[in-house]
Design a binder for these strands. Structure first.
Lengths: 217, 217
DNA sequence: ATGGCCTGGATTGTTGAACAACGTGTTTCT
DNA sequence: AGAAACACGTTGTTCAACAATCCAGGCCAT
């Protein structure tokens, strides 16, 4: 074990990913190999391996001979992300059984979002929101769907970071999380799926509106 | 194509990926860094970057300090792959419009499969089959769904390579490709989607049967 | 000024060698 | 036989160097 690097655990790619999600590196920011290698106390080669991983996950954009930068989703990306979200989440939910074990995780995410909202922690609400949707997808018991959705959520989080203002982005959806959950357990998957599609369409509108307001249309 | 040191284009990761798909490196085979770096005339560091990319795509399995090997899908993976396939393909097809431009590519893939089958080129049938399903997904006009599906197809191809015997695997489905296409253009997406689900379930049975016969249950 | 061309500096791409860290198979000892 | 110690090979990581490429700024001609 090399001294000095024991402060944080997880792979280098995970550390980078966490810092990006935390907003330490904003979307669009270019990441210099030399600078980051210095900052993380790793060699350029090791850092480049982590870059390849995150680029493949869509968190970083890699342009040959021009370096990597944090992905800044465009409007077209937002549209595509929500298209896939509707497809995946609604499809999974429609076929899901409310008695599935993962339902407890859905409920936990709903309650975490409510608690964070009550405390005014809007970033926490965003995190819990992401967990809510991820939990919905996990109802399908498919490692690959879960994994795909996690990446999608990470990309969407980048769009949120482009916008800022987590209260407007997430605040309005805490109640809808709860509502979808209750519909699911009382009225079943298909009804919940229909409600979720409206939910997602409204969320999409919120994001697109903010993009337009920022002049990114 | 002449094997050997033929100058190929594309990134190193793409070259590796092509060779894996071609069966040059069989599933389960361990890939030594030193050996492959030598074979591709690149340095270990460069090769390792390509490894990270392909591992992230699911083509290679990376175990820390133990190296990478070509992914050999297990039964659980086959089940998951087909679950996602049904989810994605059927969902896309059900919502698709037969007049969509990508329909011509679906038709082209159907005809390519028929031509290859007539010529007894079963590997070619497999390739055309993969193209058929990829074309179906492209009806959704979603870059992310298309990309996800391409990776899924690559993983499935690994399962086919585990089995061998492309004739049994692909031969029976040439006619069903045609049938799904005709149903789609004459009866619409939902009807075609139902037919496709049966198709995929039968395909899954074929693969699982072969796995069982190989003692990989 | 404007546009194109050139050049210098900075960054990425790649290499080779070296060593540390770890896993594995073998040997040795009890 | 079983466990512990060892030796070996591989991966993980670093470093320094160089090649390839991009970019900004200056220069020149129009």
């Amino acid at each position: 074990m090399v001294p000095g690097t024991a402060r944080e655990d997880g792979t280098l790619a995970e550390q980078l990913s966490a810092r990006i999600a935390a907003g330490e590196f904003r979307p669009g920011r270019r990441l210099s190999e030399a600078e980051l290698a210095e900052r993380f106390s790793v060699s350029r080669n090791t850092l480049r391996e982590a870059f390849r991983v995150l680029a493949e996950q869509g968190l970083l954009e890699h342009v040959p001979h021009r370096g990597v930068s944090v992905t800044a989703p465009r409007v077209a990306d937002v549209l595509d992300i929500y298209r896939v979200r509707r497809h995946l989440e609604a499809g999974v939910l429609a076929r899901a059984d409310p008695r599935h074990p993962a339902t407890v995780q859905v409920r936990a995410a709903v309650e975490a979002a409510e608690a964070a909202a009550a405390a005014g922690d809007w970033v926490g609400v965003g995190t819990a929101n992401t967990a809510f949707h991820a939990a919905l997808v996990s109802l399908a018991d498919s490692p690959r769907l879960t994994r795909t959705y996690r990446q999608l959520g990470a990309e969407l989080r980048l769009a949120f970071l482009v916008i800022g203002d987590p209260q407007t982005l997430h605040g309005a959806f805490v109640g809808r999380n709860r509502s979808v959950l209750e519909t699911f357990v009382t009225a079943g998957g298909p009804a919940a799926a229909r409600e979720l599609e409206d939910y997602l369409t409204e969320s999409e509108r919120t994001v697109l509106g903010a993009y337009a307001r920022l002049g990114l249309g």
